[in-house]
């Protein structure tokens, strides 16, 4: 585990009462595999939720249904009160409001770092180029990669690429940010620089859903931990409760494995 030790800001106070992301009774199959089983999950504005669980439990799939990279078989997902529309212009507009950070970064390989953070603003938000570049550079500075603006992604380290990916998502002014194991593909010495950028984001009040096994991050930045196993949400608790006193056997078993490896 990494040693991020930033204390929680004043976000221990109950989050504002309005719900930003609501999943109700969501089910999804991959063929015979029932990957998401009756998922109910509500994420309030400004809340940081960490999703944890064994590999194959459906965490990535859950994350990807929220911006409809995966469709669902039944149930409903609403973002800021609006149900997810069908594939098309309207869905594209909604996706622009949901930032996504992937395990494998997925920066546009044929575009410079600066182009990566301006493309969405220009093509989706219809911002003019100068304004987009100004904002792009500010965001790159904010995540500490401002000096890399004119390089191509392949010339950056993994940690730098992931921070660019965070800046790229932020450039769209998203209402919520989804992170799918953002540090799992990184060398250990690069994990902290990415987690710190995420900590900062959490302190600034961004609503975040983070699939991660970084307990340091969960303890210091999360309002809630959601534990998944076999396509179900088994347990939800505050980080302190969850890590020191898990209720379910599945969670106890899982924690003993990741703590004593």
């Amino acid at each position: 585990m990494s040693g991020v030790s930033v204390t929680k800001a004043a976000d221990d106070a109950a989050p504002a009462a309005d719900d930003l992301v609501v999943l109700s009774n969501v089910n999804k199959h991959f063929g015979a595999l029932h990957v998401l089983q009756d998922i109910d999950l509500t994420i309030a504005r400004g809340e940081v939720v960490v999703v944890i669980g064994p590999s194959g439990s459906g965490k990535s799939t859950l994350c990807r249904t929220i911006n409809r990279l995966e469709t669902i078989d039944s149930g409903a997902i609403a973002i800021d009160g609006k149900p997810l529309p069908q594939e098309g212009k309207e869905l594209a507009r909604l996706r622009a409001d949901v930032g996504m950070v992937f395990q494998s970064f997925n920066l546009f390989a044929h575009k410079t770092v600066l182009e990566n953070v301006t493309l969405g603003q220009i093509k989706v938000r219809k911002a003019d180029k100068a304004a987009a570049e100004k904002k792009g550079r500010e965001l790159l500075d904010r995540v500490g990669v401002g000096s890399q603006a004119d390089k191509y992604p392949a010339q950056l380290s993994g940690g730098q690429q992931q921070r660019v990916a965070i800046a790229r998502a932020l450039a769209m002014d998203p209402k919520v940010m989804l992170f799918d194991e953002p540090t799992s593909a990184l060398d250990p010495e690069m994990i902290n620089e990415v987690l710190e950028a995420m900590q900062q984001l959490a302190r600034d009040g961004m609503t975040m859903v983070v699939v991660t096994h970084e307990m340091g991050f969960a303890r210091s930045a999360a309002n809630r931990v959601v534990f998944m196993a076999d396509g179900k949400i088994v347990e939800q608790a505050t980080p302190d409760q969850f890590f020191s006193n898990p209720r379910s056997d599945r969670a106890k078993d899982f924690l003993s494995k990741i703590l004593h490896h």
Binding site: R95, G99, M100, N106, G120
Partner: peptide, 11 residues
């Protein structure tokens, strides 16, 4: 992943 990242941006 390239197309998924693009779609996630709202393209």
């Amino acid at each position: 992943g390239q197309a998924e990242a693009a779609r996630s941006l709202g393209m």
